[in-house]
C-alpha cells in the first residue's frame, strides 16, 4: 500500500469514523443534559420565532457594534465563503462527493477556484496575525485556536500545491492533501470547528429564551 492508497483508504475511512462518532458524541452530550422547565409567564409564546430570528440576524453586526467589529467579521466572512466555494465548487471535490452520495452539481472554473484559494489563504493568514497581535485575542487563544487554524489552512494550501504540481510528485502531493483533510476531520469534533453545528444550537437557544421574555436579541 503506497501513501496515496493509505490516504484514500484507511486514513480517510478512520478519519470519517472519528468525525461522525465524535460529532454525535459531543452533540448528544450537550443536548441530553437536563433542561429546567420555565414556569414564568411568557411575554411571547412563540419562542421558536426568536430562535430563527437570532440565527439569521446574528450573521451580521448590529449598527451599534459595526465600527468595532467590521474588520474581524469581514475577514471571517471572506475565508468562510472561500472555503465553501473551494469545497463545493472544485470539480475533483464534486467527483468525490458524487462517489460518496451520488449527488452531482456543476463545478466552477479552475481559475475561480485558484483565485478563491489564494484569497482564502490570505484571509486565514490575516486571521492568524490578528490572533497573535491583538491583546484580547492573544489572551483568549489556546491550543484549540491555533491547531484549528492549522487544520483549516493545511488542506487549502496542500490543495493549491497539488493542483500546481509544485514541490513533489502529484501522487505524493495528493496523498498529503487527503491526509490534511483527514487530520481536519479527526480534529473537527474536539475543537472549535464544531461551531459550524453549534452556531445554530447556541443562537437558537438564546433566541428562544430571550424571545420568551421579549428581551433584546
Amino acid at each position: 500500500m503506497d501513501l496515496l492508497q493509505f490516504a484514500r483508504g484507511p486514513a480517510l475511512t478512520w478519519a470519517a469514523t472519528v468525525f461522525v462518532f465524535g460529532i454525535t458524541w459531543r452533540l448528544v452530550g450537550i443536548l441530553l443534559l437536563q433542561r429546567s422547565p420555565d414556569f414564568s409567564e411568557a411575554r411571547n409564546a412563540t419562542s421558536w420565532l426568536g430562535a430563527i430570528k437570532l440565527i439569521v440576524t446574528r450573521s451580521w453586526p448590529r449598527r451599534e457594534f459595526r465600527q468595532r467589529t467590521l474588520f474581524a467579521q469581514s475577514v471571517g466572512y471572506i475565508f468562510h465563503i472561500g472555503l465553501v466555494i473551494i469545497v463545493f465548487g472544485f470539480a475533483p471535490h464534486i467527483l468525490f462527493f458524487k462517489a460518496l452520495t451520488g449527488l452531482v452539481w456543476p463545478n466552477l472554473p479552475s481559475a475561480v477556484i485558484n483565485l478563491t484559494s489564494a484569497i482564502t489563504l490570505a484571509a486565514l493568514i490575516v486571521v492568524l496575525v490578528r490572533r497573535l497581535s491583538h491583546p484580547v485575542l492573544r489572551l483568549l487563544s489556546n491550543f484549540d485556536d491555533y491547531f484549528s487554524w492549522l487544520v483549516t489552512f493545511a488542506p487549502v494550501a496542500t490543495g493549491m500545491l497539488t493542483v500546481a504540481h509544485f514541490g513533489a510528485r502529484y501522487e505524493t502531493l495528493l496523498a498529503i492533501h487527503i491526509l490534511s483533510v483527514a487530520l481536519l476531520l479527526v480534529w473537527f469534533p474536539f475543537g472549535k470547528l464544531m461551531h459550524s453545528a453549534l452556531v445554530f444550537i447556541s443562537r437558537g437557544t438564546t433566541g428562544a429564551l430571550f424571545e420568551r421574555k421579549g428581551a433584546s436579541i
Partner: peptide
C-alpha cells in the same frame, strides 16, 4: 452545567468580540 450552560460553554470561538460590547 445544564443543557443551556453547556451549549454556551461548548460554543465559544474565542473571537473576542464580546470585549467590544
Amino acid at each position: 452545567f445544564g443543557a443551556v450552560a453547556a451549549t454556551y460553554l461548548e460554543s465559544c470561538i474565542h473571537c473576542g468580540m464580546c470585549a467590544d460590547a
